[in-house]
Design a protein around this nucleic acid. Sequence first.
DNA 1: GCACCTACTATCTTTTGGATAGTATCGATG
DNA 2: CATCGATACTATCCAAAAGATAGTAGGTGC
Lengths: 121, 121
Amino acid sequence: MSRNCGTGSHDKHDVYAALCPCRNVLELLANKWSALAIGAMEDGPVRFGALQRVLQGVSPKVLTQTLRRLEDAGLVSRTVYPAVPPHVEYALTELGHSAAEPLAHMRDWAERNVDLLYAGQ
Amino acid sequence: MSRNCGTGSHDKHDVYAALCPCRNVLELLANKWSALAIGAMEDGPVRFGALQRVLQGVSPKVLTQTLRRLEDAGLVSRTVYPAVPPHVEYALTELGHSAAEPLAHMRDWAERNVDLLYAGQ
DNA sequence: GCACCTACTATCTTTTGGATAGTATCGATG
DNA sequence: CATCGATACTATCCAAAAGATAGTAGGTGC
């Protein structure tokens, strides 16, 4: 097996390697709020307040953190429309849309199989 | 849209509802170590020590916690072979194997797209 | 008798997540 | 003219989770 990733040249990456940068990418995606936020933006730009209502139970601080991380990674774009009251829209980038697919599968799996889990007692 | 989930009857579940039990399932899967551990067991039973070596950087405490949670959920089985030194094997259940698919897509996405992220500076 | 092996548990520290309250701005309302 | 309301946040504090490190059990080989 040609697992590589000494973080060096652009060979194959390996999420199982502690120092591979793709481990950080996995950490970013393998997160409840990231998975929900990205799913909420699949159909187009969404405002902060709308995200807060859709992601039930999220606090503004955590939502901001989540969006900033996704923005820094390049999965989400943030657009400010100068107006009062403020108007800010978050949208998936092309990269964000491609990440949305595996995350949608994960959400679907959770919804479809929840009744089969914790069945032992 | 027929989104339901007042946690009540077995209608449709919704990960966006704070109180839906499938939110817990999403939290379980949308986790770095869960995603890596499940992937490591896809090809058959694995011992604790082997998992620890494969999931580079994981501490025994966190690995134990992760495996217990997966076991409680019914995704992983734990088999103790009474011997000295101890011999314990972890394996995916049928349910665990079905969860492995979306997680594999997520890991693959991370490995394939890592070079495109954080490109802005 | 002593070190070794595996699979942990215990303890402590650090990081992250979460709840809550407060800020800034301007237009509309009374 | 003071107040209220809307939006998108920050600031603060506390709790929960993650992480590092050391220790335990108990039979085997030397």
